[in-house]
Design a binder for these strands. Structure first.
Lengths: 228, 228
DNA sequence: TTCTGTATGTCGCGC
DNA sequence: GCGCGACGTACAGAA
């Protein structure tokens, strides 16, 4: 990874056009070709180029007053282009980082879904799991359950229950309801937190909302009885 | 901005829990308090903390073998916490960057909408603009037009036409259609690029799709005839 | 301050 | 490779 602190200006042409006026920034060049420009606030770069791309040092043009170095970064597939004019270099260092083992996560939607699949009783009594990620033409349904009467329950699992999730579930219900093997199909919207608007919309459409307690479900999973 | 290259491990507790095993990474500490951990690929940090937050150097615990320095970053509002164990520092430098003038953009949705408002002929003949950002109870409609017969056309403008945009427009149409001053209301989904699924859904709902050519519209705006 | 919608979103997973 | 959905989405503008 190469780190350059420099006064520079940047022009981008691709899906849109952008311009960064001259200022002092961090230019980050990563081993995979990624180039990113950071200011001293916020975690997102001001501008960037994703791999696969190549960086070449080019000759400054006649109009490039005070430009000590000029870079061109070109995306191999899209043709997106970044032109970097460097006016002054304050720092320039390179570092070997090696391969990163990556981030281990616990508590994302996949974990919720897994726990809920093991604990369908949270949703209702006497329900059985048909399968997780039940495939349909318009995408997979998070959980598909059956009740003793032979009816089907489609469950949409979200960490945060938003109106989008209700729309998504509605589309699934519409499609699944047409299948005589599954009908009648009802919907359950399960999330750690459900926004009022989403709850209203869901209820209006006959979709039941279930609020999930991740820590409690996690506790049950481990088999240990909760002592508090 | 402080740049540290170090072998470190990171633990995050907040909306979820994450862990980064020991490895050599860039630790970026920005003037606003932002802390981010970068590996040598991809433009997004592996882990981070957003301001307002405070970084404190704490004493390594007894279990912290080989830890030369231990940091704690705490979010002022949410209580989210980051624990950083540093095993070896390869580089550590600080830099004054000053205020950045920020990014200038051209070609985002707002530009598309502005151009389309000036060139409603792109959507159909003999249409007149009622207004941009026509307010409704569930949000503003991008463009509202009228045809000579007195009917209304609601236009949803997107850079990339996705299924979400069709859903959004559908909600508007449902609402606007109830207004006797506007009815009958038809919908137009206008975007630089419309995904097949979105097109299918739109067509199924009687919504017409229009693909926009930003460069061409831009050319017409400037008044210059296109020479190619 | 909270809410809402866009984003060069980025990224991973399945087909 | 494409499509789709999640993300500690981040971020800006409006209410």
């Amino acid at each position: 990874m190469r780190l350059v602190i420099a006064r520079c200006s940047v022009d981008y042409t691709g899906r849109l056009n952008t311009h960064l006026p001259p200022a002092t920034r961090l230019i980050m060049v990563k081993a995979d070709g990624t180039v990113a420009f950071h200011r001293d606030i916020q975690h997102q770069p001001l501008n960037w180029m994703s791999p696969p791309c190549t960086l070449t040092v080019i000759e400054p043009g006649e109009d490039d007053i005070d430009v000590v170095e000029k870079w061109r970064v070109t995306h191999a597939k899209t043709g997106d282009e970044l032109t970097i004019r460097i006016y002054e270099v304050m720092h320039d260092s390179s570092h070997e980082l090696g391969v990163d083992p990556g981030l281990v996560k616990d508590g994302v939607e996949a974990d919720l879904q897994r726990l809920l699949a093991e604990q369908v009783g949270v949703i209702g009594e006497n329900l059985t799991l048909v399968r997780r990620e039940f495939p349909t033409a318009i995408g997979p349904v998070d959980l598909l359950l059956r009740n003793p009467e032979g009816g089907t329950i489609a469950v949409e699992v979200k960490r945060r229950g938003d109106i989008d999730g209700v729309e998504q579930l509605t589309r699934y219900l519409e499609l699944l309801g047409r299948d005589p093997h599954l009908a009648p199909v009802t919907g359950v919207f399960a999330a750690q937190e459900i926004k009022p608007q989403a709850k209203v919309l869901a209820t209006d459409r006959g979709i039941r909302c279930v609020t999930l307690d991740y820590d409690e479900m996690k506790g049950i999973e481990s088999g240990a009885p909760r002592l508090f």
